[in-house]
Design a protein around this nucleic acid. Sequence first.
DNA 1: CCTTTAAGTCAACATCTGTTGACTTTCAAC
DNA 2: GTTGAAAGTCAACAGATGTTGACTTAAAGG
Lengths: 181, 181
Amino acid sequence: MTPAARSRTATRSRLLEAARLRFQEQGFDGTTVRDIATDAGVDAALIKRYFGSKEGLFTEITLADVSIGRLLEGERSTVGYRMAAELTGKETSPGMETVMRSLGTPAVADRYEAELHERFVVPLAAWLGGRDARLRAGLMVSVLNGIAVSNAVLGQRSLSDAKSSAMTKHVGAVLQSLIDG
Amino acid sequence: MTPAARSRTATRSRLLEAARLRFQEQGFDGTTVRDIATDAGVDAALIKRYFGSKEGLFTEITLADVSIGRLLEGERSTVGYRMAAELTGKETSPGMETVMRSLGTPAVADRYEAELHERFVVPLAAWLGGRDARLRAGLMVSVLNGIAVSNAVLGQRSLSDAKSSAMTKHVGAVLQSLIDG
DNA sequence: CCTTTAAGTCAACATCTGTTGACTTTCAAC
DNA sequence: GTTGAAAGTCAACAGATGTTGACTTAAAGG
């Protein structure tokens, strides 16, 4: 039957969830494997066994599963607003906030830079076309990163206590103006 | 006369300069006092003597000397562009990039949040007026933070290799659209 | 019930880090 | 020169951290 008490998959999940919360609040360097293990109710040695290392665990959490493709379908004049709705809805992609808290770790920053460039900036610039396409795509990404910084670090003030609808409206307008050039 | 070889002020300056570079590239946690001292050609113990602690040194470097007031003078319809010109000119405020690399350190993030809110968001929102003034001010700050992230972390790609004039034009347009509401 | 295999624990390691206080060198003033 | 204060060095501490391998516990299969 299913081993309830000592389940490999269940323990792995609890470690992942604990790590998600810790990394998101304290970044990679600020989080210790003992913190995570204690939160999950197990020993820190299991992190090495299940994920290879602390860095392996972090990588598994922040692995980008975002694809730009789906967002670019449909009416071009409303893409900016739909991107804004996607981003400001619910939680603002906890993975991005986690990365923002870990930019001091060169390995994290380098990987994020590469993924962002390859999977976001380049295809977006190609889709944009026109003048300064690469620059406009880079600025759109910068806007999203800036909002992630605000959400992750600057806490609940300024942005978080704003109505979601107003947030979507203004962010959408900014993105759309960069799309239209 | 002036003690040339063993000068307190000269050594202090060299420590500050070395720390600036290290903190900007590796963040607060990623930088050790031994790194800084070696770069400056002195012993790490002097950091404690001259700055009290590693954190004291960091604080002295990233102390915000930006004031929003001067930027808001003059023609309202061109404020966004002037802000963009100020930000994209020369280096993009190394202090901001340094902070972006150190957001994982709660003390740094908290201080930055407080300073940004008090010295930037609040006065800017008051100056803006109109609908969603606080939200629009927060978004303007987010845009600036996002660009700092790109410059600090994402390296030379996307933004850095763009012409300064084009950069100013597009960032200015974004900021101005948030000003106009 | 006994055995085997996986899950989990434990203590210790090797390293790194900020800080500290005692010691040494420099150099200007007398 | 001698002296005395300032500038700088040095070794060591005290704590934290990721990792490792040996040991222990649990549970399924026969």
